[in-house]
Nucleic acid binder design. Sequence first.
DNA 1: ATCTCCTTTTTGATGGCTCAAAACCAGGGT
DNA 2: ACCCTGGTTTTGAGCCATCAAAAAGGAGAT
Lengths: 226, 226
Amino acid sequence: MRVALSKSENELLKSIYRQGRDNGRVHTGVLADLLGVAPGTITAVVKRLAERNLLDHNPYRGVELTQAGRRAAVAVMRRHRIVERFLSDMLGYAWNEADRLAGSFEHHLPQEVEDRLYVALDRPASCPHGFPIPPPDVAEIPEMPPLYSLEPGDVATIAVPGSTDASVVEFLGAMGLRPSVRVEVKEKHPFDGPLVLEVDGHMRTVSEKVARQIFVKTEELFEERI
Amino acid sequence: MRVALSKSENELLKSIYRQGRDNGRVHTGVLADLLGVAPGTITAVVKRLAERNLLDHNPYRGVELTQAGRRAAVAVMRRHRIVERFLSDMLGYAWNEADRLAGSFEHHLPQEVEDRLYVALDRPASCPHGFPIPPPDVAEIPEMPPLYSLEPGDVATIAVPGSTDASVVEFLGAMGLRPSVRVEVKEKHPFDGPLVLEVDGHMRTVSEKVARQIFVKTEELFEERI
DNA sequence: ATCTCCTTTTTGATGGCTCAAAACCAGGGT
DNA sequence: ACCCTGGTTTTGAGCCATCAAAAAGGAGAT
């Protein structure tokens, strides 16, 4: 890993990491859609990355991150989340605005500045969306299950992805369902029915569809971390 | 000015602005040296910039900024200085370290973030080196004369360029000659002799050579600004 | 008026990023 | 087994940044 990766290389690693959590192998077409770029472009970037042993490329059959690739991908996510924190904590952006802007300049930030930023922000444990900021140099970020996977009695802290559409974000806001908020599942209606939660003393109902777009850090994971 | 300028275009504008303050016309060779790049590279960038009417190019005879080019160059300097302030005020970098780092990512910062940063920093009037941060959209930054151009009795605030070499910076520090410090000229020895200053209650002597590397904002300019 | 020297511009080359369109293959249907 | 189709890779092209080396121009010297 002699020289720094370019912006598109970094973005590609991130996308592969996210897509490949369970699937393992990721197809270039998926990546092209995800990054909004022509299919040929992905192949070109993939080739350079495979050259550097950051991923395995099985022509016509998909790509998979190597250990080094996973580490690089996680580093990209770490940086992204630190920059988001900077945008929200220091510049006053709302949590749902930070995502968009961070992507536009995070790749050019020197490592040194990222490190100082992390310290200046007081070593935050999570980004404004509620996702954890991993330690440097790890190859995995703890998986966060969807809110809908919880059962009555479970308690968890929620995270809301930056990709959530604006109307949903507004709806969640009205119910106090903001990142890093603690919730307890009270009821889960059968047959993909809605979830009833206690949020900040209030009872709230969310549909299955919405509860699959929200992710959670459960108590056990929470404790481990302390 | 439809689309954003690239990094090298921005750097080139800045260099031409600085070189061309008095000379007017600047030769490409000078710019190649300044930016540490092959002469042909400068010609290529100059061509694109001339296309956009940011500068006049007289082949084999040098370039000159247009009005729009001056405005763009000043915007680049404004951004650079704001980022320097961020590095020093928010991340704790020493004033003489900020310069180097700022250059590495300032060009990728969205305008929007620059604006927010400026506000979050409390609309600073100058960069950590003591040079003024111009208002948006102007085509000139007030010229700062060298310290050596002052006469006994003159009072001024000093600015120290980022290009000053480390040993000189250390020497200046030992005498309390830091950016934005107020000095009064007490004596000026003839025949390019040294300058005697009062700095923070102490009498200090600096050679002509050093006094030409430091720049000043005189009282009159200072008052105007308030 | 010419010539020479120094500077500037042009000309290939490379590498990153991207696209559209052509060529290519893998796997499913027959 | 064979072929078709849809997704994947290649190819050809353009733009930016950069270099080394070749070509061209200017300006002063003869």
